[in-house]
Design a protein around this nucleic acid. Structure first.
Length: 326
DNA sequence: TTCCAGGTAGTCG
DNA sequence: CGACTACCTGGA
């Protein structure tokens, strides 16, 4: 077990950990909360590592306090780099706030979102499946589904603070039963009277997305290589992830933004459409594709952050409620 | 209790 | 191409 810190002086701008963790970004469900700390199992250099992080420390110089625990010996530097990547600690939020302040429509978001950062995937495949599961679905429901999938098919690791599960590999997930019928068809031997369906994807609450998830898990083993995707330019990567079943333009942008850190992505969901219309177009009925183009053209490399900040601002200011149904 | 939100895929013109 | 609708679940 090791304990160390990341200094505030090492990162550009503020960092609000609970806000980042609980803002509903589709990279992964929020980590397990323990008082003001958050815990999750990460695979670092191929080894399991329970990472506990907090940033409520009294000392103003500490941006993040990290306690890491692993049966293997993992260099502190590797753990630190993983945390920096997941919480986008290299992003310069001071520059973001300069950019937001230049646009009177965007400047109010700063006070509502100070320290909110992109919560990037700890595992890109998990982000692909999370994003597919989030389509046409509430945050509460898709996060619950992903937690179910991890519990049923992920590797389990026991630590003093509890059991943690990794997200299953594409190999494992592509071979799970899609629904009750398939689970019982595969059942070996006599079926007990008290048989409970639970080891199938639909039982995780993903609904009709189960077949998309299984087929996507198959495709990332063959046609679509996630490691190559990470190296593609944004436009090419967008076209590529669109080939996955259950992935349309909005989900594709979530995958590229939260899974691969492509910050020029502007995921255009129905809420962002309403917010953009309200702020910039008063009455028009924009097509989602137009909303996406508007975001990319006007916000450039800050598009992903603007989408995140607008949505969170609308949620916490009451704007979202007033736009409901429009 | 019924109703409805929320992106994608499939179908139709 | 654009317009329209079915899809599954759970919270209101």
């Amino acid at each position: 077990m090791i304990e160390f810190y990341i200094s505030s002086k090492k990162i550009k701008g503020p960092f609000n950990l609970p806000l980042t963790m609980e803002s509903g970004q589709t990279s992964q469900p929020p980590w397990k909360k323990d008082n003001s700390q958050f815990q999750e199992i990460l695979i670092i250099d191929g080894a399991p590592c329970l990472v506990n992080i907090g940033n409520e420390d009294q000392d103003q110089d500490i941006a993040v306090k990290i306690i890491a625990e692993s049966p293997n010996s993992i260099p502190q530097k590797a753990i630190k780099n993983k945390v920096i990547e997941i919480f986008s600690l290299n992003d310069n939020l001071d520059k973001l706030y300069d950019f937001l302040s230049e646009d009177p429509k965007l400047s109010p978001t700063v006070d509502h979102c100070r320290g909110l950062r992109i919560f990037k995937a700890k595992n890109p495949f998990e982000c692909v499946i999370s994003s597919i599961s989030s389509a046409n679905c509430s945050i509460l429901r898709w996060t619950r589904s992903i937690q179910n999938i991890k519990q049923k098919w992920g590797d389990s690791y026991h630590f003093s603070s509890g059991n943690f599960h990794t997200f299953p590999t594409p190999e494992i997930l592509s071979n799970v039963p899609e629904h009750d019928l398939e689970e019982i068809q595969r059942y070996e031997g006599e079926i007990p009277g008290n048989f409970m369906f639970k080891n199938n994807l639909q039982a995780c609450g993903v609904g009709y997305r189960a077949k998309y998830i299984i087929n996507t898990a198959k495709m990332v083993q063959t046609d679509i290589n996630l490691k190559k995707l990470a190296k593609m330019k944004y436009e090419k990567a967008f076209e590529t992830v669109l080939e996955l079943p259950g992935v349309g333009p909005k989900v594709a942008d979530c995958i590229l933004l939260y899974g691969f850190g492509m910050k020029q992505a502007f995921p255009a969901d129905v809420w962002i459409k309403r917010i953009i219309e309200f702020l910039y177009f008063s009455k028009n009925d924009l097509k989602p594709q137009k909303v996406r183009e508007f975001g990319m053209e006007n916000y450039g490399d800050w598009a992903g952050y603007v989408q995140l900040y607008l949505f969170h601002y609308a949620r916490t200011s009451g704007l979202l409620e007033s736009l409901r149904g429009k």
